[in-house]
Design a protein around this nucleic acid. Structure first.
Length: 877
RNA sequence: GCGGAAGUGGUGGAACUGGCAGACACACCAUCUUGAGGGGGUGGCGCCGAAAGGCGUGGGGGUUCAAAUCCCCCCUUCCGCACCA
C-alpha cells in the first residue's frame, strides 16, 4: 500500500448529537409505520408462484407478559422468517394464543375477574409486547383458542372422533391433581407430580372420563419417527420410549384345580425362550383373579391389601422403581403349558396392572427383578440360558454357570426340553409358533402408550359436546348445534368438581333424539386438544363453515420449521402428530406429519438458575427494551450462544450488542450516499488494496451467514462475523469518504501523528461506499430489523426491505489472494509465511523451509507435509 | 441403574471434514478525549518466565507428521427414562 502519509490531526469536537443511536426513537417510528401497513408481513395467498415456507413458533399461553424464553424462541423464528422472505419465499409466519387453561381460573378466584376478561387482556398486552419487539407476524391469521370460532372446531373434531370410535368413555383410575382440582393425562404426570405443580403429588382416583384412542396409532406414531430426520434425535428417542413398543407373546397358564369361572392366567412375556426357567407366576395386586384365588382367607386378604397400599404409595411418590419388593403366595399353582410343571401363584407389589396383562411368569435366573424377588422368598432359580460360545457348543454335563441374573440375548438354551441347544433368537420364534399351534399362546406387541384422557373438571376450556339422556343414554350434540358455548358469569371454585355442573342453564338440555330432558357433559377438554391442530387453522383462520380449507392446507403443509421448547417433546408433539394422522384419515389433509423440521431451543437462565419469581432473578423483556432497545435485546439472545444451548442472561452482553449497533448506526449515518444510489454505479474495477480487503471480507461474511442459516443455525457466529466485518471496514470506509477540509469523523479526541491512507478518488469511494453500506444493511435485517429499516431509509432506499433480495455473496470476490501459511517444525508452530493463493506446493515448501532454517539447522529433514492453504509441517530428526 | 448431551481463559463462547487453540464479545488494565463522567477512540489481555522458551482444551493412556476434534479407561455436570415383564 503506497497511499500512506503522515498527518497531524487534532481533537474533533464537539460530538455530533444527531449521531447518537437512539433505539427508542427509531423503533417507535418504525413500529408505528409497520402498524399502519400490516400487509408488509402478510403471507401471499396459496395461489402464489413463490415457493412456500412455513415457519412456526409454539404459541404461548397468555400468562400476562412475555418472558425471555419467549423472546429467544421468537427471535430465532423471526430471523429465519425474515431471511426466507428476503430469499424470495412466500413465508407463513403466524402467531396465536393457547388461551384456555387453569391460570385464568386461579386469577378469577384471586382477583374476581372473569377468566375470559383476564385472558383477553393478557393477550392484548402480550401482543403489544411482540409488536414492540418487532416480530414479523401475520396478525391477520391470529388464533385464540378460547374463542368460540376456534373451539367450535375442537367440538367438531370431538364428534368426528366419537363417530369413528376414537373417543370413548370409561371408568378407570386416573391421575388427580388436587392443586389443579382436575384429572391429568399420563403425559402430564412427571415423577408422580403434576407437570404444573412440581411439588404436588398426583392422586389416583376412580372416575368416569372421556378418552381419545391415541393407541390406535401407536405403531404409526412410532414408525413415523424414523422418517422425521429433521427432528432432534433427543425428541425422537423420548417419543420412542414413551410409546414403548415391546414384541413378545401371551402365554396361558392353566390354574391347577378348579376355580369358579376362570381356569387360566395369561401372562405377557418378551422372553418366551426362558419359560422353562419360570418358577412362579406373579400377579399384580389389582389383578381380577386375585380376589378369586384369595377366596375368603382373611390372612391372605390383608396381605394383598398391604401390597396394594405399598404400590399405590410408591406410585404417588413417583418412585415405583425404588419400592421394596414384597409378595405373598396364594397357596395355588398353575401349569407351565410347555412341560406341565406346577408353579406357585404369587401376588407381588412390583407387578403393574396397567402394563401387559398384569401377570408375569417369573424367571429368576434371567430377569433382575425376578431374581431379587426369588432370592428374598427362597424361590427356585433355574438356569435355562447359557452365554453362547462361538463355534463351540458347551460340553454336556459341565455347563459353565453364568453370573446371575443372566439377561443377555446372545445365548443358548439348556434344560428346555426339545428346545435345548437352540439359540435364544431361534427359540423365541419356535416356541411362539409352538404355543400358537397348541392354542395356549400367541405372538403380540405391547405398548406403554395409553389412551389420552381428555376430560378436565374445570371451567376454562372447551365444553365436551355430549349429552346424557335418561332414555337414549349418551348422545352427541348434533353438528348444527355447535358450538356448545361456554357460559359466562360462572362461579369458579376449586372445590366440588366441574364448575359447569353448578350452572343449571348449561346442564339442563333437551335430547336431540327423543326430545326428552337430558343433562350436558360438564367437563371440558384438556387444553392440549386446542394446541394439537392450531397450526392448521392459521392457514385460513377466519373460515366460518369448516375447520380448514384442504387446498390451502395442502399448499402450506407440512410446516417447514417448527421451533419451541423441548418440554413439549412428548406432550404437545405426540398429541399433534396423532391429530394430524387422524385428520389425514378423515381426508382433511394429506400430510402424515405436521412438521418436517423441529428445533428445540435451550432455556434462558440467569446466574446459573432458571428465572423465577421466587429466586428473584427474572429479567423482564420490557426493561431490556426500554434500556437498550428491541434490536439489542433480540440480537443479544442470538449472539450469547447458539440457539440449542442454555443461555445465561448477562446484561453486560446486551450492552455490548447495543454498542455494536451504535457503531453501525454512526458508520452508515456519516457515510451514506443517499444521492448516489447503488444502481447508478457498477462495482469499481480497480479497487485500492484496502477497499478490496473489505470487499473480500464482505463476501466472506455473506457466505458465512448463508451457511449458518442453511446449516447449523449458529447465529452467534453469524453476528460475530458481522462484528468482524464492521471492525475491519469502519476505519477504511471513513477514510474513503474523508474530506481533507472537513472534521475527522471517527477519531474523536485523537491527537498526535498517525498514519493516514490517502482517500481513494470520489469515483471509487462513492460507488463503493454505496454498495458496501447497502449490503451491510441487508445483512443486518434478519437480526436487527428496526435499525436495518432505519438505515435502509438513510441510504436512500425506497423498496420494501423484507421483499428485497438478501445478498448472494460471490465466492470469487471472497477469495484470499495472499494466504497466511503457518509453518511448524515437528508439529510446533514456529513461523508464518505469506503466499499467493495459487502458488505451487514446491514454492510453498521452499518459502516455509527458508523461514525455519534456524530451527532445522543441523537436523535431518525426514519429511515435509504441506496442507494446501493452511500450513506446512517440517518433520526433522 | 439405563440412555443422551456437555466439560476450552476471569466470564459468555469460537475453532464446521484431524491442520496456527482462544474468533467475536463481556470484564479488566493502560492510554487519549474531558472540569468530570457510566460516552467515544487506541492499545494490551490463557498460564509460567526478564527473555529465549516452556506449558496449556476435566484427568490418564493411545493412534498420527499433526488431536479440543479419533480410540480406550476414569471423573464431573446437566437432561430424559426408570420395576414396562
Amino acid at each position: 500500500m503506497s497511499e500512506i502519509t503522515e498527518t497531524k490531526i487534532t481533537a474533533n469536537q464537539p460530538e455530533q448529537r444527531e449521531l447518537r443511536y437512539e433505539p427508542q426513537q427509531i423503533e417507535e417510528k418504525w413500529h408505528a409505520r409497520w402498524e399502519a401497513d400490516p400487509a408488509l408481513y402478510a403471507a401471499e395467498p396459496h395461489t402464489s408462484k413463490r415457493k412456500k415456507y412455513y415457519v412456526l413458533e409454539m404459541l404461548p399461553y397468555p400468562s400476562g407478559a412475555l418472558h425471555m424464553g419467549h423472546v429467544r424462541n421468537y427471535a430465532i423464528g423471526d430471523a429465519l422468517a425474515r431471511y426466507m422472505w428476503m430469499n424470495g419465499y412466500n413465508v407463513l409466519h403466524p402467531m396465536g394464543w393457547d388461551a384456555f387453561g387453569l391460570p385464568a381460573e386461579n386469577a378469577a378466584i384471586k382477583n374476581n375477574v372473569p377468566p375470559r376478561q383476564w385472558t383477553l387482556s393478557n393477550i392484548g398486552h402480550m401482543k403489544a409486547q411482540m409488536k414492540r419487539i418487532g416480530f414479523a407476524y401475520d396478525w391477520s391469521r391470529e388464533v385464540a383458542t378460547c374463542l368460540p370460532e376456534y373451539y367450535k372446531w375442537n367440538q367438531w373434531f370431538f364428534l368426528k372422533l366419537y363417530e369413528k370410535g376414537l373417543a370413548y368413555r370409561k371408568k378407570s383410575k386416573v391421575n388427580w391433581c388436587p392443586e389443579c382440582a382436575t384429572v391429568l393425562a399420563n403425559e402430564q404426570v412427571v415423577d408422580g407430580c403434576c407437570w404444573r405443580h412440581e411439588e404436588t403429588q398426583v392422586q389416583q382416583q376412580e372416575l368416569e372420563q372421556w378418552f381419545v384412542r391415541t393407541t390406535n396409532y401407536s405403531e404409526e406414531l412410532l414408525a413415523g419417527l424414523d422418517k422425521l430426520e429433521g427432528w432432534p434425535e433427543k425428541v425422537r428417542t423420548m417419543q420412542r420410549n414413551w410409546i414403548g413398543r415391546s414384541e413378545g407373546a401371551l402365554v396361558d397358564f392353566k390354574i391347577d384345580g378348579a376355580i369358579s369361572g376362570t381356569e387360566k392366567i395369561t401372562v405377557f412375556t418378551t422372553r418366551i425362550d426362558t419359560i422353562y426357567g419360570a418358577t412362579s407366576i406373579q400377579l399384580a395386586p389389582e389383578h381380577p383373579l386375585v380376589a378369586e384365588l384369595v377366596g375368603n382367607d382373611p390372612h391372605l386378604h390383608s396381605k394383598v391389601e398391604d401390597l396394594l397400599r405399598e404400590q399405590a404409595r410408591a406410585r404417588e411418590v413417583g418412585d415405583v422403581g425404588a419400592i421394596e419388593k414384597h409378595g405373598v403366595f396364594t397357596g395355588r399353582y398353575a401349569l407351565n403349558p410347555f412341560n406341565q410343571e406346577k408353579v406357585p401363584i404369587w401376588v407381588a407389589n412390583y407387578i403393574l396392572m396397567d402394563y401387559g396383562t398384569g401377570a408375569i411368569m417369573s424367571v429368576p435366573a434371567h430377569d433382575e427383578r425376578d431374581h431379587e424377588f426369588a432370592q428374598k422368598y427362597g424361590l427356585e432359580i433355574r438356569i435355562v440360558i447359557l452365554p453362547r460360545r462361538i463355534g463351540q457348543p458347551p460340553a454336556p454335563g459341565e455347563p459353565e454357570p453364568p453370573v446371575l441374573p443372566y439377561t443377555e440375548k446372545d445365548s443358548l438354551l439348556i434344560n428346555s426340553g426339545e428346545f435345548s441347544q437352540l439359540s435364544n433368537q431361534e427359540a423365541i420364534q419356535k416356541m411362539s409358533a409352538f404355543a400358537e399351534q397348541h392354542g395356549f399362546g400367541k405372538r403380540t406387541v405391547t405398548y406403554r402408550l395409553k389412551d389420552w384422557g381428555i376430560s378436565r373438571q374445570r371451567y376454562w376450556g372447551t365444553p365436551i359436546p355430549m349429552l346424557y339422556c335418561e332414555k337414549c343414554g349418551v348422545v352427541p350434540v348434533p353438528e348444527k348445534d355447535l358450538p356448545v358455548l361456554l357460559p359466562e358469569n360462572v362461579d369458579i371454585t376449586l372445590q366440588g368438581g366441574s364448575p359447569l355442573g353448578r350452572v343449571p342453564e348449561f346442564v339442563n338440555a333437551t335430547c336431540p333424539k327423543c326430545g326428552g330432558s337430558a343433562r350436558r357433559e360438564t367437563d371440558t377438554m384438556d387444553t392440549f386438544v386446542d394446541s394439537s391442530w392450531y397450526f392448521y387453522r392459521y392457514t385460513n383462520a377466519k373460515l366460518a363453515d369448516r375447520p380448514l380449507d384442504t387446498a390451502t392446507v395442502n399448499y402450506w403443509f407440512p410446516i417447514d420449521q417448527y421451533i419451541g421448547g423441548v418440554e413439549h417433546a412428548i406432550l404437545h408433539l405426540i398429541y399433534s402428530r396423532f391429530w394430524t394422522k387422524f385428520m389425514r384419515d378423515l381426508g382433511l389433509v394429506k400430510n402424515d406429519e405436521p412438521a418436517t423440521r423441529l428445533f428445540t431451543q435451550g432455556m434462558v437462565i440467569k446466574d446459573g438458575a432458571k428465572m423465577s419469581k421466587s429466586k428473584g432473578n427474572v429479567v423482564s423483556p420490557d426493561d431490556m427494551v426500554a434500556k437498550f432497545g428491541a434490536d439489542s435485546t433480540r440480537m443479544y439472545s442470538l449472539f450469547a450462544t447458539s440457539p440449542d444451548r442454555e443461555l445465561d442472561w448477562q446484561e453486560a452482553g446486551v450492552e455490548g450488542v447495543h454498542r455494536f449497533l451504535s457503531r453501525i448506526y454512526r458508520l452508515v449515518k456519516r457515510n451514506a450516499q443517499p444521492t448516489h444510489p447503488f444502481w447508478n454505479h457498477p462495482r469499481p474495477r480497480h479497487l485500492p488494496d484496502n477497499l478490496r480487503k473489505i470487499e473480500r471480507k464482505l463476501h466472506q461474511t455473506i457466505l458465512k451467514i448463508r451457511n449458518d442459516f442453511e446449516g447449523r443455525w449458529h447465529f452467534n457466529t453469524s453476528i460475530a462475523a458481522l462484528m468482524e466485518l464492521l471492525n475491519e471496514a469502519s476505519e477504511i470506509i471513513e477514510w474513503a469518504n474523508y474530506e481533507p477540509t472537513g472534521p475527522l469523523p471517527f477519531m474523536q479526541g485523537q491527537t498526535g501523528f498517525i498514519h493516514v491512507p490517502v482517500p481513494p478518488t470520489k469515483e471509487v469511494a462513492i460507488p463503493f461506499t454505496a454498495l458496501f453500506l447497502r449490503q451491510f444493511v441487508l445483512l443486518l435485517a434478519p437480526f436487527a430489523p428496526y435499525l436495518a429499516a432505519e438505515l435502509w431509509e438513510v441510504i436512500g432506499e425506497k423498496a420494501i426491505l423484507l421483499r428485497t433480495d438478501w445478498p448472494k455473496g460471490d465466492a470469487i470476490l471472497a477469495l484470499e489472494e495472499v494466504i497466511d501459511i503457518a509453518v511448524q517444525v515437528n508439529g510446533k508452530l514456529r513461523d508464518h509465511v505469506l503466499i499467493e493463493y495459487n502458488a505451487t506446493e514446491e514454492t510453498v515448501k521452499a518459502a516455509a523451509l527458508a523461514k525455519v532454517a534456524l530451527h532445522v539447522e543441523g537436523k535431518e529433514i525426514a519429511k515435509v507435509i504441506v496442507v494446501a492453504g493452511k500450513l506446512v509441517n517440517v518433520v526433522v530428526r
